[in-house]
């Protein structure tokens, strides 16, 4: 079979990224321009500033990717692009760029859901084996997904309120930690003790998650201690928070593995970089004899390589867009839901 090279474009939040991926599994080259330093002083991503940065970078990144891969546009077979979900003004830049490439070159345009990208980041490590459970954990998602074949996504559970990464960032903010706070909470969690009495987040028999309760409880403890003039032991707050969050995520994930009788677990999204979560899942997977896969660190955060991996399988499935493809701030990946 002929090799398929995908030029992939991802601009859904604060990273302008392009990648060239061969056959959905081999990363030829990736360029990522991160805006994190720009948004840091605002304590979070400012959508208008993100859009402005994307448009300044877009053709520079396009130029860079072909140089880095030592390839030309003629060698590209398909154009993959994140159409959503994400910040609309950010998505639009990558989308218009991709559509223009499709217009000028006549190559097929493949719309990719951002979460499908995160899931397929694992395919860049080793070929996905089905059936599998995917744990999607990021700043915008906390989903448990069942897949029995390529590019078929069935959601079995999801967060009812905050995404796990969002809860981490908010807890970090109340503790006065830098943005983005998730990785810092993870770091401190390894240095403290579990001393604060926080509730377990939605520790029930469903596959859903809820992190707003533990987030509020953490806020209250911090406020009360401050009001009483007591010092807050930041490391201990982080440990107590992280232990409970990870406990419930791991418990529900492995219950899904049992119930759906699968042998394969993949983790996807920015929080897949969380060390505490990696350790807990690895330990449990070893006990249970489950094949566990994480993306490598640079594929946990937003990047176009994962979009290129997903685009290949979307293309194999016959998914293709015309030049009227639009960006969607909110869109469900899952079959028969929402």
């Amino acid at each position: 079979m002929k090799d398929i090279y995908c030029l992939a474009i991802e601009s859904s939040c604060d990273e302008t990224s392009m990648s060239i991926v061969k056959n959905g599994c081999e990363e030829m080259a990736t360029v990522v321009v991160s805006q994190i330093d720009i948004h840091k002083k605002f304590g979070g991503v400012v959508p208008e500033i993100a859009s402005r940065s994307h448009i300044e970078s877009i053709t520079i990144v396009l130029d860079e990717i072909f140089k880095k891969a030592n390839m030309t546009m003629e060698e590209i077979d398909i154009i993959g692009v994140t159409y959503g979900p994400g910040l609309i003004g950010s998505l639009l830049i990558g989308l218009q760029c991709a559509k223009t490439i499709a217009l000028v070159t006549g190559k097929p345009l493949i719309p990719v859901h951002h979460i499908a990208g995160h899931i397929y980041a694992n395919n860049l490590e080793k070929r996905l084996e089905f059936p599998l459970i995917a744990l999607v954990v990021s700043g915008g998602h906390t989903d448990l997904v069942y897949m029995d074949k390529d590019y078929s996504f069935k959601k079995i559970g999801s967060t009812l309120d905050d995404a796990v990464g969002e809860a981490y960032d908010k807890v970090a903010k109340i503790l006065g930690l830098d943005y983005p706070g998730g990785p810092i909470v993870d770091k401190y969690a390894h240095m403290g003790n579990d001393t604060y009495d926080l509730p377990y987040p939605l520790d029930d028999n469903t596959y859903n998650f809820s992190f707003s309760g533990i987030k509020s409880a953490t806020f209250n403890i911090v406020h009360n201690e401050r009001q009483r003039g007591n010092n807050i032991r930041i490391e201990d707050v982080c440990t107590s928070f992280q232990n409970r969050v990870i406990h419930v995520i791991v418990k529900k994930t492995f219950r899904a593995i049992d119930e759906y009788k699968v042998k394969n677990l993949i983790v996807a999204g920015g929080v897949a970089a969380n060390k505490g979560l990696r350790e807990a899942l690895t330990k449990k997977a070893q006990e249970k004899g489950i094949n566990l896969s994480f993306p490598k660190m640079e594929h946990c955060t937003d990047n176009a390589a994962m979009i290129g991996a997903a685009a290949y399988f979307a293309y194999q499935k016959g998914i293709k867009a015309d030049l009227k493809l639009n960006a969607k701030a909110i869109d469900s990946l899952y079959e028969g839901s929402e």
Binding site: I55, L62, D63, L92, T100, I101, V104
Partner: peptide
């Protein structure tokens, strides 16, 4: 319109760059 302008400029830049 910020968004409107960005759409036209992104298309024009990409088109001009490619060809």
């Amino acid at each position: 319109s910020f968004t409107g302008v960005r759409i036209g400029v992104t298309i024009a830049k990409t088109y001009a760059y490619l060809l």
